[in-house]
Design a protein around this nucleic acid. Sequence first.
DNA 1: GAGCTTATTGCAAGCCTTTGCGAAAACTTG
DNA 2: CAAGTTTTCGCAAAGGCTTGCAATAAGCTC
Lengths: 145, 145
Amino acid sequence: MVGEAKSRLNAALRDRGYRVTLQRSIIMETLEGLAGHVSVEDIYARVRERFPQVNISTVYRTLELMEEAGLAVHTHFDDGVAKWHRAEEGAHQHLVCRRCGQELELDLDVVEPLAEQLRARYGFQPDIAHFAIVGVCRSCSERAQ
Amino acid sequence: MVGEAKSRLNAALRDRGYRVTLQRSIIMETLEGLAGHVSVEDIYARVRERFPQVNISTVYRTLELMEEAGLAVHTHFDDGVAKWHRAEEGAHQHLVCRRCGQELELDLDVVEPLAEQLRARYGFQPDIAHFAIVGVCRSCSERAQ
DNA sequence: GAGCTTATTGCAAGCCTTTGCGAAAACTTG
DNA sequence: CAAGTTTTCGCAAAGGCTTGCAATAAGCTC
């Protein structure tokens, strides 16, 4: 199973004409093994357990590659930090409360009508989930009264 | 008129219990005198013409203050750089093409239905225009064929 | 599997932004 | 207007991310 994932990931690289390196394999396996949203720092920490001399810029570059290959997705949250997740987990929109930092996950259905508008009216293909939506959550706005 | 703007801005500070300093006055006047979207660097450059020893962190802090006071607004574009504009210019949404970098300005009407959904269904008060919407513009997606 | 070409890596530096801290300036009071 | 209090400022450092460059390693060819 581990071997299966490894060869699948390596094939994804080779199919695109990219070279298979130990760094890339480890980084890709690491993200595949993590559920939910993780920061680059999280991934870097795990990767270093197996390959201490790897540089964090290689992690950034490999994640970018995985995104290009449709294996990974990243979203920017309000604090500016990007978080990554496996593409298989599916796209979704995030609401972030600017007061308490709470994060809500949203089905893409809710934003699809807007996406459709942008395509129809402007010919613009939006990647709406790329940024979280900032605002104030219910409990924080009630607390403000 | 310059004097009028100055005292209005200084009053905005005093009303909130903030101190009026030369740095703040100059930074606030500078943003008021600039139309459209400007980066912190743009503002900093102008401010330095009048007050060379001012530090850029003071510019950041003053802009934050202006936002709190409802005098300024900032938006994050895809390249991570924030751009500022006077609050009076009104809120609007931005579409940014990830290929060519082109920026489209959008009336808030287009995103209002989504905002309404988020308020109704989640009690979440979104600040939708805080982040630009990333995607691929019409000409870039046609060029890709 | 040795040699060659070219992609990839690690490193260092840089960009944009935020933050802790001591020094300096603004307001307040007598 | 002098002294005291409290905010604000400049500076330096740090955080998250990107990039240029020389050294290294992957993959190709024979």
